[in-house]
Amino acid sequence: MTAHDPQDPHDLGEWDPSLLDAARALEGPSDALERRLLARLEGTIASEIAAPPRVDSVAERPSLGARVARVVRAHAAGVLVAFAAGVLTGRVTKSTDAPQSLTAPRSARDLALLRDAGASISEIAVIDVVVVSPADAAYGPAVGLEDASRGAPDVRTSAPRRPTARTPEPEDLTAETHLMDMARSALARGRAEAAMDAIDQHARAFAQGQLAEDRESLAVQALVTLGRREQATRRAEAFRRRWPSGLYRPRVEAAIALIR
């Protein structure tokens, strides 16, 4: 039995993963429903391409000023800080001069769609710069063309929060995840040597990486599969010392139980 420390944020207490077993398999639509869904989707996409979302009358369409005011309200603090910085440095720029790094990748066709929807180039720049953040673009549904043309995104509540300083770095985490996926996949296919290669590669590149616990649990499982009992036992002991109530402790114990 493991002693639990409720003050330790990584101490997750007792948990029986089998509670969720019945929900592990994916439950997809039937083939017929999948075909229907795809046809429906293609129909919607085709109609959007043929007639992009458009506000019918000038009266119904919020003015550029109103739309800019809306996003400025939503980002008031950031805009004020940026404006103040601009005033201080004497480099207040027009919206169209915004740095490209703030804009999401956008194809020529999407820009054409924006123009077709009645947006001028300066409006497109404003919408791009103010609404779309790199985090939106990379990880989730950004507020984009359709939301802008419908005119009702509440970016204060609907846009994903920007990563904080303590949010994992995306690049390293991607590389780490890739190596762990390789190890896990090799292990699942019974190729424990290949799994160890990926594990060793991770250990060299990311000794204290964010997925170190994942790596060490996989290492124990791979070593057990390879019949390297002593190494598996040593690594399991090190795991217990480092992550006494770690997420993957049950996997480690289950693997070690096989060679006891």
């Binding site: 969720l20 989730g140 904080t164 303590r166 949010t167 994942d214 997420l247």
Partner: peptide, 27 residues
Amino acid sequence: HELDGEAIPVVAQTLEIPLNTAYSRLR
């Protein structure tokens, strides 16, 4: 984490929350 098998740092990154928040929510 439990059904998709994503590591907690990946969960934190995807949901754009601090790592400790992800652990705390999981617990």
